[in-house]
Amino acid sequence: MGKYIIKRIINMIPTLLIVAIIVFLITRMIPGDPAAVMLGPQASVQEVEKLTEELGLNKPLHIQFFDYIGNLLQGDFGNSLTYNQPIADLIMDRFPNTVILAISALIIAIMIGVPAGIISATRQNSILDYTVTTISLIGVSMPVFWLGVMLVLYFSVNLGWFPSTGMGSMDEGFFTFIRHLILPSLTLATIPMSQFARITRSSMLEVVSQDYVKTARSKGVREFIVICKHAFKNAFTPLLTVMGLQISSLLGGAVLTETIFSWPGMGLLIIDAIEKRDFVVVQGTVLFIALIFVVVNLVVDILYKVVNPKINYSSNKGGTS
């Protein structure tokens, strides 16, 4: 197991490097002089030259790249012009807020989506099953930004139950904090929740007809335990894969959700920076999100092996018997 983890971490390094190269190249694709674009049309020639110097844009591309990687390795994501502070600090300010949002969305998605899928599968073709299937189908097709706007319209504007924007700090009390959190996390949870329900249903359907489920029943085990212990743990592997993939869309969806609810996370930071044409911030933040995703995927892969003892640690292929 330990060997496997080390091997996976070593395998991750080229991917991380490629991620950095991609971000570096994309930001160098800006047509014209990036420094001039960032400073806007009213900037003087001297100001543009000074920024070009500061960003090292006058150096050859490969030198720029090595400087960039070198800085990254020291945890230096560059400095923001508009925010007047190191980007690493900006990210560390905002990142916890995004994590709070993403994790509460993930919890909602798992707590509702997975049981809904299980119930749907154990009562196949019942009205309950059709309801879950229909709602989850609509859910995966949902434009989250629209859902967010509609939730604001009904629950904030019309009913006044929840605030429409911002994040409540813990200092104002736990209740305020939760009240601010509910709408954004519900919005962000919709797609993963529906995906979880769909995938849980289909993999549970595959599993409940397996012989070992029949064996468990023949032992006199209670149906609840048959489903939750014997069937679900086997249906869990595909679910885990989807969960890993959904982390990506959670982080992506966070950009839209944070914009709608003015949630002060990484997504709002990116959109703000784009408006201010602060490309260094965009570059740093996007890179950071991608790095997080690579690491999360590694964790999911390792969990995968923990859950499924059949997979051989020494090779990449899953061994049967």
């Binding site: 397996q210 012989d211 070992y212 029949k214 064996t215 468990a216 029943r217 023949s218 032992k219 006199g220 085990v221 014997h230 743990k233 086997n234 859950v307 499924n308 003892p309 059949k310 018997s321």
Partner: peptide, 29 residues
């Protein structure tokens, strides 16, 4: 079930739960 009347099935490769140890499955019974 499993107490006064027990059952064993045709294919032992599918009738044991792959994600639990055999001990777990006997002890459960």
């Amino acid at each position: 079930r499993g107490n006064e009347i027990s059952m064993i099935f045709q294919d032992p490769s599918t009738s044991l739960n792959p994600v639990y140890t055999v001990g777990n499955q006997i002890i459960e019974s």
